[in-house]
């Protein structure tokens, strides 16, 4: 039962992307959309989904929207303004280091979401991930601390909190 449901969830996501991208609900687009989405769902569901019920949880979608709203307004604005200030400052002040940032999530999607969130905020870029030690190595433009626990609080604690609720 899980396999067809997996395919269906991936197909519905692919179909939504197809229709939004084409911007049309004509018979031709709906039909080609169904064909492409079904093929995508059947071919890729085994490598993209393990537990389809997570995708159907309204609670997880609610946290996704909350995370997006917070991320694009508060976190991104703070990080952008900080790096823009450094770029436009006459001395271009930087204090860079590659620090360890531990994480406590389990699923690959959650790890990817945290890594992408860190990299998408200017001032921090993930250079390497150690899955055994469960740490990211992050290049930080203004390394306030080298202590992994404090670095996690400064860089990724918020992202981790939401990623855990959405993906784990």
């Amino acid at each position: 039962m899980a396999k067809p449901l997996n395919s269906m969830v991936v197909a519905v996501l692919a179909f939504s992307v197809y229709i939004v991208f084409s911007g049309s609900v004509s018979t031709y687009d709906l039909l080609t959309g169904v064909i492409v989405a079904t093929t995508t769902g059947v071919l890729f569901s085994s490598i993209t989904l393990q537990n389809p019920w997570k995708t159907l949880s309204p609670r997880r979608w609610y946290y996704t929207l909350r995370y997006a709203a917070r991320y694009f307004t508060i976190d991104e604005t703070k990080a952008h303004l900080d790096v823009i200030k450094r770029i436009l400052h006459p001395k271009a002040p930087v204090n860079p280091a590659i620090v360890k940032v531990p994480f406590g999530v389990e699923s690959d999607y959650a790890k990817t979401a945290i890594a992408c969130s860190i990299t998408n905020t200017p001032g921090t870029v993930v250079v390497e991930i150690d899955e055994v030690e469960k740490v990211f190595y992050v290049h930080w433009i203004d390394a306030k601390t080298l202590d992994p626990v404090k670095a996690r609080e400064e860089i990724s604690l918020v992202f981790e909190k939401y990623s855990k609720k959405i993906f784990d």
Partner: peptide, 17 residues
């Protein structure tokens, strides 16, 4: 303005988002 490779990745992110 940033001359180092790793530092240049940060303005790149500004351009992305």
């Amino acid at each position: 303005r940033f001359k180092n490779f790793y530092l240049r990745l940060h303005p790149l992110t500004i351009n992305t988002i």
